[in-house]
Design a protein around this nucleic acid. Structure first.
Lengths: 228, 228
DNA sequence: GACATTTAGCTTTTAATAAACAATAACAAA
DNA sequence: TTTGTTATTGTTTATTAAAAGCTAAATGTC
């Protein structure tokens, strides 16, 4: 089936959108931020945070603008995952959509904002049926994230800037959905010098208290070796 | 900078294209298929094989159609790499472009076709200046391919269906641009049962001759473990 | 038949990485 | 001071990957 010599007209009708897959962490579980659509189309259904790309904005910029518009979240670093382009992926229009993913500290997204934007967090084991091919997008993003989280320090956005090692381990166990050996985990951490042990302790979660750590990004850029 | 409430009009002007990064292998070097543009825009410059996505074709389909239209290559399996969406990536129009990559047997692309389509193979160390952001696309595709080639049997498309182990090793050395130990390489190969040793020998490249092998795809799908 | 060349197979050593595993220290509360 | 709870720390073993040495087989050329 040869389909050359297309007219400008047909070409121009394709719309370009971005969908954002936002991960959070709560109660030792990985969660996903979804919104319930207030307007047509697909009003009342759950959806990723998405929107059309403007003519005069970069694709990356559009992802950030859309995230900001629809959730109030600003200056979130997002990575492009994949572009979905099936003809009928959206029932009423021809739209190709690039997915972007980010991890955020849940507390940076307040209850007020959740209400305002009609959003809700879902544990990734309980993601409802989403519009279009958004469930596929989520599946792919989760797989990719689980692969990357072991070799790149992307998960620290899910924690406060100061965190304890038990917290960090619980985070990894929650993300990967498997238990990790405490001593092996800590040994790996101690090999990464950019995970800096502070003098302070966090006394809120145990009697003894656990030392706080922080992730030193500038330092990491020199070493560039991460493995958990 | 808030950019909400876009009109349909501005949205519709974004065009969607696909660019194909086609790898070949020759003279123990990894090569890239490029075309010299016959028409404006950018006439006479080197470019990836690219074109606009039709309104009624999937993005994946478009990649194959465009590759076929502009090179005569058909039914090539391509993987999506990344979508490029900077506003000014193409100087005269707003185009976002998804890149796709494939590896092909150079001999399946004849001299006739090369001439007909104004194409040329370039060693990846000698890629000329390309239009737009195509050089960036190539860089990213090469990095990704070098990562994937060790864990997935994607490189066999660069060889005839029957090949010798010295050929296979030379291929990997060429792709990765490093020398590999013969004995360790062969040991790994012998662990992958879906690399089937045939009775035949190839006598063209050495006195003794080397046994031919083939990659059994169905068998691979059962084992799904690849490491070279 | 001796020789050169390349393929082929087998083995050992070493290094690197990952996995398994148990006792002690610090603290608050009772 | 005892008790309960969580944080912290090292050693050993197993597995895997890399490096290297050696032998031998097959073939065409001399």
């Amino acid at each position: 089936m040869i389909k050359s010599n297309r007219t400008e007209q047909t070409i121009q009708q394709i719309k370009v959108s971005v969908d954002c897959i936002i991960f959070g962490f709560n109660d030792n579980k990985l969660e996903l931020l979804l919104i319930k659509k207030k307007d047509e189309p697909e009003k009342g259904k759950w959806s990723l945070i998405g929107g059309f790309v403007g003519f005069d904005e970069d694709l990356d910029e559009a992802a950030n603008r859309i995230l900001s518009d629809l959730s109030g979240l600003q200056d979130i670093y997002m990575e492009q995952i994949k572009t979905f382009g099936k003809v009928n992926r959206c029932s009423f229009d021809r739209v190709i959509s690039s997915t972007y993913s980010a991890m955020i500290l849940k507390s940076s997204y307040t209850e007020d904002q959740i209400e305002k934007y009609n959003a809700q967090w879902f544990p990734i084991t309980e993601v409802p049926e989403l519009i279009f091919d958004h469930n596929d997008m989520v599946d792919i993003a989760i797989k990719r994230m689980r692969r990357r989280v072991r070799n790149f320090p992307i998960a620290f956005n899910l924690l406060p800037s100061k965190f304890t090692l038990p917290q960090l381990q619980a985070l990894y166990e929650g993300i990967l959905d498997e238990t990790l050996d405490k001593r092996n985990f800590r040994r790996k951490v101690s090999q990464m010098n950019y995970l800096v042990k502070l003098e302070e302790k966090d006394m809120t979660e145990s009697r003894r208290g656990a030392f706080l750590y922080r992730f030193d990004e500038a330092w990491y850029k020199k070493e560039k070796h991460f493995n958990l």
